Simulated assay, not measured.
Amino acid sequence: MTVQVEIWTDINCPFCYLGKERFEQALTAFAHRDDVEVVHRSFELDPTLPADESGPVIAKIARKYGISEAQAAANERGIGAQAAELGLPYLTEGRDYGSSFDMHRLLHHALAQDKQDELLDALYRANFAQQQSLFGNHERLVEVAVGAGLDESGARAVLADPDAYADAVRADEQEAAQLGATGVPFFVIDRKYGVSGAQPSTVFTRALEQAWGDRQPLVQMAGGADVCGPDGCELPTRD
């Protein structure tokens, strides 16, 4: 008996980076953590970005929200302070942005290799804590993938084929829309409970406990009557 947690995220999203850590803190303390299955789903904050477009994050934020670059920089410092409270490294300046589609394709490849969580952590670190850009840089992506335990030839093959796992990424994004997700991180537990945003760990703890309580085995009130099973229907014994 397991609880499934699906998490829609984007590597461009700093709150996804923080939210993953807060969720994992809750999961680590959860009594039934070994019975929780976590699957990461794809969500692009800007699916219209060309693969070859990138630029400074602060300038991008300022344009998107109609604020000054000074205000955008202050926002980045605020996120950096939140990251520091969680023990996460975070560059508050010098980062860039770009299309994350290739990264999501690699994450689906990693899922098939049972390395998805490791690769997501590595991509977050590379994007938020390291200076060298990930965007439009296949060599850098291969380096990160290999560091996360993936086979180099397999990662190169995925990146060389623009159709590899592309349908899986788009299917995740369509499903997110059907579930009503307009932003990330978005957590769905057993397709019954939704948690939106980088919530405090206590919120995730309550959600996990509620989901686990709903998964308790059925209490059988009566038995022994006539039933049908895989081998057919047993005729009742007549006295």
Rank of each mutant, 00 (worst) to 15 (best):
R125D: 10
L107G: 04
F128A: 04
L91R: 10
D117W: 07
L88N: 05
L88F: 08
Q116A: 13
Q82T: 13
L91Y: 08
L119G: 02
L120C: 11
G80Y: 05
R105N: 03
Y124R: 05
D102P: 08
A84L: 13
S100E: 08
S100C: 12
L107C: 13
L91C: 04
A81M: 07
S99P: 02
N127L: 01
A112S: 15
P89Q: 11
F101G: 10
H104M: 04
S99D: 06
G94A: 09
M103P: 02
D96L: 08
M103I: 09
L88R: 05
A129L: 08
F128T: 04
Y97E: 02
D117M: 13
A84F: 11
H108T: 10
D117H: 10
L120I: 15
F128P: 07
L111K: 13
D114S: 14
T92S: 10
N127P: 07
L111G: 15
Y90R: 06
A112P: 09
G98L: 02
A110G: 04
E85N: 11
D114G: 10
L123E: 00
M103K: 03
N127Q: 10
N127G: 04
R105A: 04
L107A: 11
A122F: 01
A129T: 07
A83R: 02
R95I: 07
L88D: 02
A81H: 12
P89V: 12
L123C: 04
N127D: 10
H108I: 11
Q82K: 13
A84K: 15
D102M: 09
L106F: 01
F128C: 02
R95A: 10
A129W: 06
L106Q: 01
G80D: 06
Y97T: 06
N127Y: 06
H104R: 01
A83I: 03
L111H: 13
A122D: 01
T92W: 01
A112H: 15
D102A: 13
L107Q: 07
L88Y: 05
A83C: 09
L86D: 00
Y124H: 14
A122P: 06
D96Y: 05
K115Y: 03
A126T: 00
A122C: 14
Y97A: 05
L119R: 00
Q116S: 10
L123N: 05
Y124D: 02
L86Q: 09
N127K: 07
H104G: 05
A129S: 14
G98Y: 00
H104V: 04
H104Q: 11
Q113P: 03
A129G: 09
L111D: 11
G80A: 09
